[in-house]
């Protein structure tokens, strides 16, 4: 293989990481508040609100049930509106984010729900406001679980980003498709897949390590 190809792959790795990390961060910016809202508006919780809970829940379910490949296509006009283009690395971040939001929200919801109700009760008995209860009690207690969830989300978004490569996204997915599939360059296909596996491994291991380091029970 030529050094040119290595540069190509190197760029692919960078693009993939860029897409994955930015989309995951963006998805958390929106999905984390939604996940929190899903928990605290639930029945018997600190900000119980049936309507908000129902609307958010249904919305998340709808978005989650659309296959990602279809979401990619459906979102093309929206992506073009936001980024001015529908192909390339930056453009791909949009559908990745949209696709990841419901997954993040549900993952956050399930992590926060693991916190025993006694903690919330103790917080209330201390005179904590809902905001304090969320940020000083529930989230710190759920942190190890939230970190593990984030790791899984990162790996999921990484997989999606490779898929996005098929319809004009950049990154390793596009390389694998263009070189490995259309031009029958098996070695490139192999290398890109291997790199994807390594990246997922690194994400997963460091996430687990971090979560365990944070966990004290």
């Amino acid at each position: 293989m030529t050094s040119q190809l290595w540069v190509l792959i190197g760029n692919g790795v960078l693009e993939t990481l860029q897409m994955t990390v930015s989309a995951t961060i963006l998805a958390y910016l929106i999905g984390l508040p939604i996940g929190i809202a899903l928990v605290v508006t639930a029945k018997e919780h600190i900000l119980q609100n049936r309507i908000v809970n129902l609307v958010l829940g249904v919305l998340m379910n709808i978005f989650r049930s659309i296959p990602f490949l279809i979401l990619l296509v459906v979102l093309i006009p929206f992506t073009r509106f936001v980024t001015g283009s529908s192909i390339g690395t930056t453009a791909t971040i949009v559908p990745l984010t949209v696709g990841a939001i419901p997954i993040v929200a549900r993952m956050v919801e399930s992590s926060l729900k693991e916190v025993p109700s006694g903690i919330v009760e103790a917080a209330q008995s201390m005179g904590a406001s809902p905001i304090s209860i969320i940020f000083r009690f529930i989230i710190p207690e759920a942190m190890p679980s939230l970190l593990l969830g984030a790791t899984i989300n990162l790996a999921t978004v990484l997989g999606y980003s490779a898929m996005a490569g098929c319809i004009g996204g950049g990154g390793l997915g596009a390389i694998a498709l263009n070189y490995g599939y259309y031009r029958y360059q098996q070695d490139i296909l192999f290398i890109t897949v291997a790199i994807l596996i390594i990246i997922v491994q690194v994400f997963q291991e460091s996430g687990t390590l971090l979560a365990n380091k944070k966990r004290h029970s």
């Binding site: 025993p116 006694g118 009760e121 103790a122 207690e141 942190m143 944070k214 966990r215 004290h216 029970s217």
Partner: peptide
């Protein structure tokens, strides 16, 4: 409380 309700991560 009976179950103490301490924050285990603090």
């Amino acid at each position: 409380f009976q179950s103490f309700n301490l924050l285990m991560q603090k």
